[in-house]
Design a protein around this nucleic acid. Structure first.
Lengths: 219, 219
DNA sequence: GTTCAAGAAATTTGATCAAATTATCCCGCC
DNA sequence: GGCGGGATAATTTGATCAAATTTCTTGAAC
């Protein structure tokens, strides 16, 4: 363990932890994030925490408040609209690129991950759902060979995470749709366009859910 | 001056300076960026410099080298292709949104900026061209009311900057096209779609130039 | 005697921490 | 309701430690 810990710098570890906290909604929209709070919570030094916060801020996952504090941003309807536009452009494209590079081994792996997604939905475990859903999408996207697009998708998911968690927790994970079967069927059939459409539908559905929650004033 | 300097934190200033160095190509692709080098060059403390570097890294404007150094990334053909895809999606959209919100005052301002672009081209001043060209685009984009899209455009320009500078310096600024007249004409005519097309052409042309330089092995 | 390579020392650079400074917020008081 | 003053947190600096690169040296082979 000491060998591992020594290799990977503390600020990377700290960044990863903070990122997951936001990505998987362990921090709520609007919640303030303080350096000293994270120092205690993550048991890290001040410098690594500062750097992690700056990185998240640069990615739009944290929002400077003018007074030198930062907080988890609220997803306003206007922001959601912009987010939707880019996600619906970039992620189907990623699916298309990945579709052209799929291997049987990768499809198997995606099936296994989707199994975990299903299990999480059936069991009503929101955190597991969010993590395995994320894993499914990015295991696919990574196969695209387009790291810049993957980076952009990642930063968009970060802005999405906190609100999605709230919505899931509200409706319960059992109500969540799983469009991954559609995607997997297209993969098996070698239907690249169909895969892109399935991913598009999946994303659209997630966006619609958040939009509905917004209109209902729930977030 | 002390009032100004005290208000805006040092790490913000440092970040802004480093960002401009990359955005306007004062750092070449492949060039290593060191903390201590920037500490001396920008006359800043170590922490602000570290944070600026982390932010730029998070935006993809600097690339970690594995050994804990960072450098200005080279724009490979594969990256350029991904970059082109997103820019050609996001920036025409920004132009379209901005087109619906244009005021005569803003058009006047854009005309003035375009005058500076022209003057820089005629005078062969590459730096001035890059800065006023950037100013033109983002003055327009800011009017879109879509800050998330503007953020994305900004990060894409950052990845573009260093290579664009090399290309401009090679071909000379006098050879640079200026599609802004087309855009301004569309603005005056209230032709939103035409404005979006003009911006799309402008971007496409810049991308083509870099692509040609890549194929010629010049960058 | 020259050349090359391996290894060790020195230098450069990055990572982390702790203390001092400064700004902001909040609460009691006028 | 506006105005200090204490508490809290962010900023910044400088020092220290660790890692990596470069340079220099040494020894062996040709």
């Amino acid at each position: 363990m000491d060998d591992e810990t020594r290799k990977i710098p503390s600020h990377e570890v700290t960044y990863g932890r903070l990122r997951d906290m936001i990505l998987f909604g362990r921090l709520e929209p609007g919640q303030p994030v303080t350096i000293q709070g994270l120092v205690k919570e993550l048991d890290a030094g001040m410098t690594p925490v500062r750097e992690a916060i700056r990185r998240m801020t640069a990615e739009g996952a944290l929002l400077p408040q003018g007074n030198r504090r930062v907080a988890v941003p609220n997803l306003t309807p206007a922001l959601l609209e912009q987010l939707a536009f880019v996600r619906l452009t970039v992620e189907p494209k990623l699916a298309e690129l990945a579709g052209a590079a799929l291997t049987p081994a990768l499809i198997d792996r995606l099936e296994a991950i989707d199994g975990a997604v299903d299990a999480a939905i059936k069991g009503g475990r929101v955190s597991d759902y969010l993590e395995s859903n994320h894993a499914f999408h990015f295991a696919l996207y990574e196969a695209s060979g387009a790291p810049l697009l993957v980076d952009i998708a990642r930063s968009l998911w970060l802005r999405f995470g906190p609100s999605l968690r709230v919505v899931c927790a509200r409706y319960g994970a059992t109500a969540l749709p799983d469009r991954h079967e559609e995607a997997l069927a297209a993969m098996r059939a070698g239907d690249v366009k169909g895969l892109a459409r399935a991913i598009e539908n999946d994303i659209q559905q997630g966006i619609d859910q958040i939009r509905q929650a917004q209109e209902a004033g729930e977030i």
